[in-house]
């Protein structure tokens, strides 16, 4: 009688899979990596999940800025629309290309060609720096028109949104720099696939985020 009562409660315990990484975190793996294949799907999954969750937080940050912008633009009659500097479209193109170069790095990673990874990561980081330089030129173009941070709320949001995105992209650049440093000795880097996959995911998100911000700046005037 007791057994029947509890059976529904307790079955099928040992096989039920409540775990994510547990299965893919087997003995001897990810421990500095002296043996066995490096690629650890569970670790990759965990790092990518971390980025996805982080994306949620970043989305809320920019959603708050967006709603502030929408509300502020409708509140009073001091909102002065302006044309975004043309260089933003160049920087957009640069950023889009950088996502493809980073995919190149990922492909070299799958092929375990670590010097290839390094090369493509270098290229991506360089494009990232070019993007940031373009953004600075955009600021310069705007201030040359006499439109500074405090000139008008429309300008304020332009500077805040581009700076916010730029800072997040700088985080992405730092992670690429970390990859670049560590991948010189790939055999001593147990989390390399996970970090590269996570950095790539974050970088692509920076693309999407930027296109959203550009759309907002162009269309919500």
């Amino acid at each position: 009688m007791t057994t029947t009562l509890t059976q529904t409660e307790t079955r099928p315990a040992p096989t039920a899979n409540g775990s994510g990484a547990f299965n893919g975190h087997p003995p001897g793996n990810g421990d500095g990596g002296r043996r066995g294949p490096f690629s650890n799907p569970a670790l990759i999954q965990r790092y990518k999940l971390g980025v996805w969750v982080g994306v949620g937080g970043i989305v809320m940050f920019f959603a708050a800025l967006t709603s502030a912008m929408v509300v502020r633009s409708g509140l009073s009659n001091d909102w002065q629309p302006f044309d975004v500097p043309w260089i933003l479209f160049l920087s957009t193109a640069v950023l889009l290309v950088s996502s493809f170069t980073l995919e190149g790095a990922r492909r070299r990673m799958i092929a375990a060609d670590w010097s290839g990874v390094r090369l493509w990561v270098n290229g991506t980081a360089a494009l990232g720096l070019v993007f940031l330089a373009c953004q600075l030129l955009g600021w310069q173009a705007l201030s040359a028109r006499g439109l500074f941070l405090a000139s008008n709320p429309a300008n304020s949001f332009y500077y805040v949104l581009t700076a916010g995105h730029g800072l997040h992209l700088l985080g992405g650049l730092l992670s690429l720099g970390y990859v670049w440093l560590r991948v010189r000795a790939p055999q001593r880097w147990a989390t390399r696939e996970a970090v590269i996959e996570a950095a790539a995911l974050y970088w692509h998100f920076m693309d999407v985020l930027w296109i959203y911000i550009l759309g907002l700046l162009v269309f919500w005037r």
Partner: peptide, 24 residues
């Protein structure tokens, strides 16, 4: 708090022991 929240969420989703379903 954002960094901590990220950590808590991933830990709960990803590091549960075998047999520890969400409803347990």
């Amino acid at each position: 708090s954002l960094l901590a929240a990220l950590n808590f969420i991933v830990t709960t989703l990803d590091l549960r022991a075998k047999g520890l379903t969400m409803m347990r």
